[in-house]
Design a protein around this nucleic acid. Sequence first.
DNA 1: CCATCATGTGTACACTGTCCACAATCGCAC
DNA 2: GTGCGATTGTGGACAGTGTACACATGATGG
Lengths: 207, 207
Amino acid sequence: MSTARATYRHGDLRRSLIEAGVALAREGGPDAVVLREATRRAGVSPNAAYRHFADRAELVEAVSDAAQGAAAAAIEAELADVPAASDVPSAQERLRAVGIGYLRFARDEPGLFRVAFGVPGNLDRAFEAEKAGPGGSSPFALLAGTLDDLVRFGALPAERRPAAELLAWSAVHGLAMLVLEGPLHELGEEIRVMAGRRVVEMVVRGI
Amino acid sequence: MSTARATYRHGDLRRSLIEAGVALAREGGPDAVVLREATRRAGVSPNAAYRHFADRAELVEAVSDAAQGAAAAAIEAELADVPAASDVPSAQERLRAVGIGYLRFARDEPGLFRVAFGVPGNLDRAFEAEKAGPGGSSPFALLAGTLDDLVRFGALPAERRPAAELLAWSAVHGLAMLVLEGPLHELGEEIRVMAGRRVVEMVVRGI
DNA sequence: CCATCATGTGTACACTGTCCACAATCGCAC
DNA sequence: GTGCGATTGTGGACAGTGTACACATGATGG
């Protein structure tokens, strides 16, 4: 943390920098992840960061991974409330839970959300461990799992399964971004909750 | 443009700065709209900008308005290809056109798109004239119009009309953002087109 | 014709990311 | 142990940014 260290070596500077970056992102989104400020909070000179990250973008990427882990935790928490029965209604309910959890995370942690899902990455890395929550799955993996269930229980025709992640994710992500930093910024709380519910219903109905 | 002016006064500096800002945004999105660079391109000292904008954010906002105008033009172009008949199928076709036009703009002008729809604004201003395309309507207004048609022709129950903009917009905007600067960055062209079509279908079916 | 006011200039400051040369320390071969 | 090489952190520097303050210029209305 911010304890002025006695030793020349820091111990685990990389982790400290990521933690400081997460704290910054929490308060101001991706742009607030300032390399110099992170080193300051880690009690270290600015250049020390370059021993662990090639440049600022790489630090932000690591922070983004951590933020995706937090998002996964929020989704897992929402999923925990719905019984894991092996039938269509409960599979649909789990899909709703994933969407609601995603939106809840966006509302509760807007800064983290933006750094998690508003920073260029690639699809190949969507499943990797750095982005996982406590349960070991990344947000993308959680969504994919519920869609697989929908297919297994016959609620989603197999030929519509490919790229179905994109549909579900797009709808929910779009609402979150529009509300967080887009033209819907000043929407009232109750309208946002209502819109969230209806977007999720649109996905369940239209996927 | 970049012609070194002879006179002390500039003439229409505000407009020049916005145009320079649009050019910058086109190449690099919102972060590329650099106040000093805009003044440089306008052939003027950095501080001159402060006679027309309170700060950088205000310049970016003006650039965003202009970019939304360009988006409206793209949507209008897409709408122009579908006959304006007064029946359900053609109203649905117009809704598709709005979505496809939006996605096309995102693909053709990613920088402008991000400055248009990734910058905090508010819903109150969504319809105002600065954001309008050649046809005089803002992107939001174009969408609202097609949704009104859907209600008029009986394809959308009136009780589902409120906030239906949010549903349609969210789905399409989400896909665009995920592909442009989110985790779906490296998706292939054909997958993106396919995903676009399917998202639009999901909206038509699920709204 | 001159005063006023809008508009553009110059200088300055704090802040950022990043480069370079140097210093301290850890860990391993002998 | 001892010395040495690789890691990791430091210090100083530079270009670039947004923006504040005082000043210069020139168009305009009395």
